[in-house]
Design a protein around this nucleic acid. Structure first.
Length: 558
RNA sequence: GGGCGUGUGGCCAAGUCUGGAUAUGGCGACAGCCUCCUAAGCUGUAGAUCGGGGGUUCGAAUCCCCUCACGCCCGCCA
């Protein structure tokens, strides 16, 4: 059973197509509110029906047979209104149940790779954009009915880990900066930073190159040390992500790919494709003037081919492949795409790229320490939330304040990252990141808490509300709120590669609820108290559902 | 230099793919709203040459060309 606004749109498209008698692109748009729920400008039909747009609109409106709504002509435009009784029954009725906005389960797997940060330092606010986008996209795909797996690719054989390992084995505590936080990723990072600085010295550089060579020659002991160190840092990443309500279904290490022989297989296969070339023994692929090396002259593998091997391996266990990547990986991503294409391997990977987060106009960097660590941001956000709660509530228990502060703080962090379109750059500002009003998670959470509060004071059984007649809701503010709720499934369909749309919608929904809250007393209502209560429960469910799509928890108290 | 991306009121964003009827929100500013379900809320006012120029079109923030600014990439690093 389709959601009402989606069904209505399909009906409109079907009718226009039927009347015009051919398949044509039909521009269905959402107009200003007073012009209806949908609008279709008829200009583009003029060339095929050889009439002017006004006449076409008039013809369409005359011949159109709509079950789910009505049409009106306005010059060269058609405006459509959905039937309110249908909308109310379908929307309120269905959102009284959980999982409003979820679509039928389909037999299709999607594998979403996200985070995949270098395991040499804690996550900073810049690379936090990756897991926040990735986890949200995963949640969206689940709602669209996909069988979703999220995966973290652990680059445990890279140069960064070599530098870290050298530092840990050659430096002592007094050589490195003081550790700010007792967490494995922070503890190890200072050794990486120091070793990285010392690399200007030739002897240090040599030492690091020695262990890289040992690792690449397959030395079991060196590989083991690399793995141990990167796993420690990774455990720190996972702890940070857990606070943000993010976890991965699986982890794939680069070392396992090498040990399983996947990299060797990929190199052998790529040798045979036309875009592959050789330069003094080093293999590369080349397209449109881009050249990406796969192996060194000595035959050892390079990062691109290892990632290609990884993607080939991934295609064996999924129907769709999605990577969340920083914009610096665009060429690299294209090389994976080209390699798989040349090998005729499907599915082709899809990419979501995001721009970097800068700090006061400059790029964040682990090496220089010019970063805002995610852990620090989360602590500050939580603390800010606690202050806000204490400033307006004195009736909450200490533990409740702590719980709410964590929920609100983490929500604010996730929201402020996800609300921006991925390809737009973010210049990190504390006052922006800790904004708790307007377009923010706390704004949405607050509406949810208000709805929860009404239901709590009412104290009735929710089952009483399922038999309520939603068509008793007839005030403008009530209808507007229902329409906003009804839009959610459509928003989900649009948001797969644009997760910021969900954040946008969340704010609109909360704002609409707040207006309803202001104008329509629920518990004091005379005739339609139960139908309003039903609307409050609907709103609460959908607010919670939308927040859950964003990985944000909906508190009952704030 | 070449490639990719971004540029919307003082600030931050939506809208750009799929061109349409008055460019949508938030922050900040100013003026208001708690005897009434949580004021992290709500209402109103001021504030926009949609980076700039040209073009296509009945119609351009949206498409095309040129140009400027910023970011990213252009390693037998990852």
């Amino acid at each position: 059973m389709n959601y009402p606004l989606i069904a209505f749109e399909e009906e409109i498209r079907g009718e226009i197509e039927r009347i015009l008698g051919r398949e044509i692109e039909i521009p269905v748009e959402i107009p200003y509110e007073e012009r209806g729920d949908y609008a279709v400008p008829c200009f583009s039909f003029a060339p095929i029906s050889k009439k002017n747009p006004k006449e076409i609109a008039s013809q369409l409106v005359d011949e159109m047979k709509l079950d789910l709504g009505r049409a009106e002509q306005s010059g060269p435009y058609l405006n459509f209104w959905i039937h309110e009784s249908y909308l109310l029954k379908e929307t309120v009725g269905r959102s009284l149940e959980e999982k409003f906005g979820w679509f039928e389960q389909k037999d299709e797997k999607v594998l979403i790779e996200h985070t995949s940060a270098n395991p040499n330092a804690p996550l900073h606010v810049g690379n936090a954009r990756n897991p926040i986008i990735g986890d949200t996209v995963a949640r969206i795909f689940k709602r669209l009915g996909y069988d979703v797996t999220t995966e973290y690719y652990v680059d445990d054989m890279g140069r960064q880990v070599a530098i870290l390992t050298w530092g840990l084995e050659n430096l002592s505590k007094k050589d490195v900066e003081e550790v700010e936080r007792d967490k494995p990723d922070h503890r190890l990072m200072v050794y990486y930073q120091k070793a990285s600085k010392l690399m200007e010295e030739e002897s240090v550089k040599e030492g690091i190159h020695d262990i890289i060579r040992l690792m690449e020659s397959g030395d079991a002991d060196t590989i083991e040390r690399f793995k141990t160190n990167s796993e420690l840092v990774l455990s720190g990443h996972n702890a940070s992500l857990k606070r943000l309500n993010i976890s991965h279904d699986s982890f794939k290490t680069e070392s396992s790919l090498i040990l399983e022989g996947k990299v060797r297989e990929a190199v052998d296969a790529l040798k045979k494709v036309p875009i592959c070339g050789e330069d003094e023994g080093a293999l590369y692929i080349e397209w449109d003037g881009n050249r990406v090396y796969l192996t060194r002259s000595d035959g050892t593998s390079l990062y691109p081919v290892r990632d290609i091997a990884y993607h080939i391996e991934k295609t064996e266990r999924t129907d769709r492949l999605i990577d969340i990547l920083g914009e610096d990986h665009k060429t690299h991503a294209l090389s994976i795409f080209k390699a798989l294409e040349a090998l005729n391997i499907e599915p082709s990977p899809e990419f979501i790229f995001y721009s970097f987060v800068s700090l006061e106009g400059e790029k964040m960097s682990t090496r220089s320490g010019r970063s805002v660590w995610l852990d620090g941001l989360m602590d500050t956000a939580r603390q800010r939330a606690e202050e806000e709660i204490l400033a307006r509530r004195d009736d909450l228990k200490h533990d409740d304040v702590q719980d709410i502060a964590e929920i609100v703080g983490m929500g604010a962090v996730r929201f402020n990252v996800i609300k921006v379109q991925p390809e737009k750059p973010i210049d990190f500002r504390w006052e922006e990141a800790l904004n708790f009003q307007g377009s923010s998670a706390p704004f949405v959470q607050y509406s949810h808490a208000r709805a929860a509060s009404i239901l709590r004071r009412w104290g009735g059984d929710k089952d009483e509300l399922t038999s309520v007649d939603p068509t008793l809701l007839d005030c403008e503010g009530e209808i507007k709120l229902v329409k906003k709720i009804a839009q959610y499934p459509r928003v989900l369909l649009e948001s797969t590669t644009s997760p910021h749309l969900i954040a946008n919608y969340a704010v609109q929904l909360a704002a609409e609820f707040n207006k309803f809250y202001r104008d329509h007393p629920v518990l004091q209502a005379e005739d339609n108290k139960l139908s309003r209560l039903a609307l409050v429960l609907s709103s609460k469910n959908v607010l919670k559902e939308v927040l859950d799509t964003l990985g944000i928890i909906a508190p009952d108290h704030m």
